[in-house]
Simulated assay, not measured.
Amino acid sequence: MMTWADFWALIGTLNGRADETGCRRLAEELGSRPVSDIQGFAERLAEALYRLDQEKFGLLPVVDLTTPDGGPFPQSGDVFLYTRCAVVAAGQSVWESVFFDVAKFAPFTASECDGESLLYVPDQAYELATGQEWQRQTRYCFESYSNRDGWPHLRA
């Protein structure tokens, strides 16, 4: 099983950004490892994203956009997911800090902080390692609004 320390060390290879080049490099590194490491990375990534799936982060507006009437521009579900990816890509210390200071999450809502590429790293690594497409599931769902404890008003 991949430890959190191993996960964060791999994330550290991104140098704080989930751009395509860095994510491709990470996928290649991960793809050279055993499939169990790829699965472990996918599990840790899903959990890290799930833990960030909270109302206090998801209701923050996009920092560099406004509505036509000048009001705050809300994050969509996809933008919120990609923002959470950007926070994870920034590294362990940033990821941990946002839980204690919501304001540290806000800059990652900027449109240039798109971390979407990080989502595909486990799938790309698996394909590199096995030559097959991965139909994966993880213990934690990383889709926006799936953490019911993080979104108390959404509980059924």
Rank of each mutant, 00 (worst) to 15 (best):
A106W: 12
D123F: 14
V121K: 01
A90D: 01
Q54S: 00
D123W: 09
E28D: 13
E20D: 15
S144K: 02
L14M: 04
G70D: 04
R44Y: 05
C141L: 11
E28I: 10
V63K: 14
G77V: 00
V121L: 10
Y126L: 03
T67D: 10
R33Y: 00
A129E: 04
T66A: 14
D114A: 03
W4G: 13
A9I: 10
V98I: 11
G77P: 00
G12F: 07
G12Q: 03
D19K: 08
P61K: 06
P152A: 05
K56L: 07
G115F: 04
G71C: 12
R51Q: 15
Y140K: 12
L45N: 12
T21I: 11
E43P: 06
R25V: 08
G22H: 03
E28A: 12
T138A: 11
W95N: 00
E143R: 13
F100Q: 15
F73P: 02
R148I: 13
P68H: 07
A5S: 14
F99Q: 07
V98W: 04
F80H: 12
L59C: 09
A110V: 01
K104W: 06
F57G: 07
G12I: 02
V62P: 06
Q54V: 13
A18V: 03
Q132R: 14
S32M: 14
R136G: 08
G71L: 09
V35Q: 10
E29R: 12
C23Q: 04
A42H: 13
R44P: 03
Q124L: 09
G131C: 08
F99L: 03
L65W: 11
V62A: 11
F105M: 02
